[in-house]
């Protein structure tokens, strides 16, 4: 096979032809990542606060759950959610469908939760003990200290690792193609099968890589900038 100019034009034209469809798939990747990040952050914040709770009855389970989900392979968690959750739920008279992408979102939110929990714990524990002590001397309750003194200061150093986590998450969303979610990776594979031209394989996957890079790189740069800005404070 000779790859002449005609071929290169043909390959570009083919990628262009499929771009709208695969682009729609990429929007699903973004949607999954944003939802999983939101769910994982809320749950992870609760879990992280649990990890620094003064009561062992709260602290121990929070630590175990955190370590479990932080050290589990993402793909295995994804499989678990896809296989264990039903494809629809019946609540009273209502039947709520559970499409594969929602199950995948839940599956990806679990490791995010574990990681956010550690970010929260680390961010809070990095603050000097004096912050707690002085709040206590001002007669703040523990809850007031946490919400009004500790968390507002801890959020800034938590932000860069949290954004790093998001970048890892968006790059992990093509895992959902293995469990049948029609995101960009799945649609690229479908398009390749429809074209049935093996010379398209590398260019089409390259186009997908470029799309992910274009989305992730600005986030990475922004994270690096925040890291530099917050570094001087300590």
């Amino acid at each position: 096979m000779i790859a002449g100019d005609g071929d290169a034009v043909g390959v570009l034209a083919t990628i262009w032809k499929w771009a709208p469809l695969i682009g729609r798939g990429f929007l699903l990747n973004i949607l999954i990542s944003v939802l999983a990040m939101a769910m994982g952050t809320v749950a992870g914040l609760a879990l992280g606060l649990g990890q620094i709770a003064p009561y062992a009855v709260l602290r121990r389970p929070a630590q175990i759950v955190t370590q479990f989900f932080r050290n589990a392979p993402w793909l295995v968690l994804l499989f678990y959610c896809i296989l264990l959750l039903p494809y629809q739920m019946t609540v009273g008279d209502w039947t709520v469908p559970m499409p594969a992408w929602i199950k995948a979102t839940i599956g990806l939110a679990l490791p995010v939760m574990g990681n956010v929990s550690e970010i929260v714990r680390g961010g809070i524990q990095a603050l000097p003990q004096a912050q707690w002590d002085s709040a206590e001397s001002l007669a703040f309750s523990r809850r007031q200290t946490l919400w009004m003194v500790i968390l507002p200061q801890a959020i800034k150093p938590m932000l860069p690792p949290w954004m790093n986590l998001y970048a890892v998450l968006i790059m992990a969303t093509p895992l959902a193609s293995i469990v049948g979610v029609e995101e960009a990776m799945t649609l690229t594979r479908f398009a390749l099968s429809a074209e049935n031209r093996s010379e398209l394989l590398l260019p089409m996957y390259l186009a997908l890589l470029v799309a992910f890079f274009a989305y992730c790189y600005p986030i990475a740069r922004w994270t690096a900038r925040l890291e530099r800005r917050f570094a001087v404070k300590h």
């Binding site: 032809k17 499929w18 709208p20 469809l21 649609l187 594979r189 479908f190 398009a191 099968s193 429809a194």
Partner: peptide, 14 residues
């Protein structure tokens, strides 16, 4: 099947 031309495959509209 959506990946088995010509029995079942997708067109560019999806």
């Amino acid at each position: 099947k959506a990946d088995y031309r010509p029995w079942g495959f997708i067109d560019p509209s999806g």
